[in-house]
């Protein structure tokens, strides 16, 4: 990755401090090297998509961003500062990042509204009235105003994931992390989640998205990072990755998915 600066040419907000920067990040599980020296940056307002085969390390990298996985080597910067190691400081950082999980992970014992307010109420200490008002605005944004008092079990997968996005947004994060947000969804509900994400991107939210939805990456990403075996194979704007990949492994991966532009 000696050409990161060259490759960065033309990226959004490339001259200001990146929101997230990974420098030679390493992660080991026993003998298995999950991340083998990964360097990449996420600029403000950018949508960065991480693609690659299953088990190639893209989800692991995403999870190191908010320290759900602790890195074994290299550095990770959030807003120009190294990711802290104390638990209290990590919590502060996590409050500024939103995360959306593959399996939604809504809290089943809470209503939709309570799922969205629990973060701000517990962590930010705002009033219940304010939290509720904020939640209702977000429910409108994800198109689920009428579901406020339902429980997650009564919603479709797509609706649950939209609530999960609203829950993360309720913390007013500076960056949103999406870990394969549509992989657990029925095909007919994938679109509604991707639309919400697209709208978020259009509003200028900084997003890191691990995805297998190549058409989403092609259409929405500002920057695409291709993973294989814990390393970055290639990174570049979607036009390069999808239309003129420079690396054989990128081409192979895309052709396995049946990508043909």
């Amino acid at each position: 990755m000696s050409n990161v600066t060259e490759a960065d040419f033309g990226r959004k907000n490339a001259s200001s401090t990146p929101v997230v920067e990974y420098r030679d990040v390493r992660k080991q599980y026993g003998n298995f090297t999950a991340l083998d020296g990964v360097s990449a940056r996420v600029n403000r307002g950018e949508v960065l998509c991480l693609i690659g085969p299953s088990g190639s390390g893209k989800s692991t990298l995403l999870r190191t961003t908010n320290a759900l996985e602790v890195i074994d080597g290299g550095q990770l910067y959030f807003d120009g500062h190294p990711l802290p190691s104390s638990k209290a400081e990590i919590r502060k950082v996590r409050q500024r990042m939103g995360m959306v999980f593959q399996s939604f992970e809504l809290f089943p014992h809470k209503t939709v509204l309570e799922n969205i307010t629990i973060g701000p109420l517990t962590v930010l200490g705002i009033s219940e009235a304010e939290a509720n008002a904020r939640a209702r605005v977000l429910l409108e944004k994800v198109g689920l105003t009428d579901k406020a008092d339902r429980y997650p079990a009564n919603l479709s997968g797509g609706q649950q994931q939209r609530v999960a996005i609203a829950r993360a947004l309720a913390m007013e994060p500076e960056v949103m992390l999406f870990d394969e947000p549509t992989s657990a969804l029925d095909p007919e509900t994938i679109g509604e989640v991707l639309n919400v994400m697209k709208r978020l991107a259009d509003e200028g939210m900084t997003m890191v998205v691990v995805t297998h939805e190549m058409s989403f990456a092609r259409r929405v990403a500002d920057w695409v990072v291709v993973f294989d075996h814990g390393k970055i194979v290639e990174q570049g704007p979607p036009a390069q990755i999808f239309d003129a990949p420079r690396e054989d492994r990128t081409r192979n991966f895309l052709s396995h998915l049946g990508w043909n532009g």
Partner: peptide
């Protein structure tokens, strides 16, 4: 994943235990 969802919101381990894990 339930604990992780709580932690990702910035909750402490005790808050996650009290508000998310124990009630379930």
């Amino acid at each position: 994943g339930q604990s992780e969802a709580g932690l990702a919101l910035g909750m402490s381990h005790i808050e996650v235990m009290r508000k998310i894990v124990l009630p379930q």
